[in-house]
Nucleic acid binder design. Sequence first.
DNA 1: GACCAGGGCGGCC
DNA 2: GGCCGCCATGGT
Length: 277
Amino acid sequence: MNYIVQKDKIIIYNLEDFNAEHILECGQIFTYEKISENEYNVLSKDKLCKVQTFEDRVELLTQDTAYFENFFDLKTNYSAIKNELVLLHQNLSEVIEFGKGIRILKQDIFETVIGFIISANNNIGRIRNSMRFLRENAGQKMGNYNAFPTLETLLKFDEEFFTKAGLGYRAKQIVKGLKDLENFDFEASKNWDTQLLKQELLKVCGIGSKVADCIMLFGYGKGDVFPVDTWIEKVYHDFFDKTEKNREIMRKVLVNTFKNLSGYAQQYLFYYKRSFV
DNA sequence: GACCAGGGCGGCC
DNA sequence: GGCCGCCATGGT
């Protein structure tokens, strides 16, 4: 990756592997705002990063360059990943070309947990609205924006608050889920392998197989997971088996096909399918 | 007015 | 263990 880090700015010159629209609108993150055609605000925890796209470069403007250098996964070679993926399945070439600027973000784990609990049987627009509501009504003020609330803060709110946030029937779930998270060792979990991590995540109310896979991919950076949602189900019917209806079976076949690059393959496929219908 | 959205839970067998 | 109906809400 060709980029330089300055005091409060990162400048990226390799636009083949970095496209702000691909990265932010591919469904992995719910906490960003589009400011104009070439500008996004990306929010993570208590931090803000402006993403400005120019003809020959992208500039990341932030007070915490180290945090967002990791957040945007700038040290990973996505050209190499894409070259490997096209060898694993014949349809990946066209799919990757469409979303070639995607990168898998390394998001805050707690924020990812909350976002994907809300995501169940929901759509991305409504998820973003709910996450914005939580930030603006429970998060600490940081000047001209709010931080995402901590677990300790969200534990103080009741079901009615989450209903107002637009969670619908998930309001009851998340109140229980937050209590479950009190017993979840976030620090230690970073060292767990995929199998143990999933087993522990599944103990939290609101987290099932697919949501756990998303948390492991977008929060923990696990490559050997393949979240299967309604869009991936459509892809599976197009590219693998038209009649399969069991998502767990799809997940196993897909992980077996893409191995430790499963998460990347999933994201290119998701973005492609959701864009074209 | 049915169908869909980055599914999960609880009850039933 | 697997299967199935139900679950709020807003947009087509």
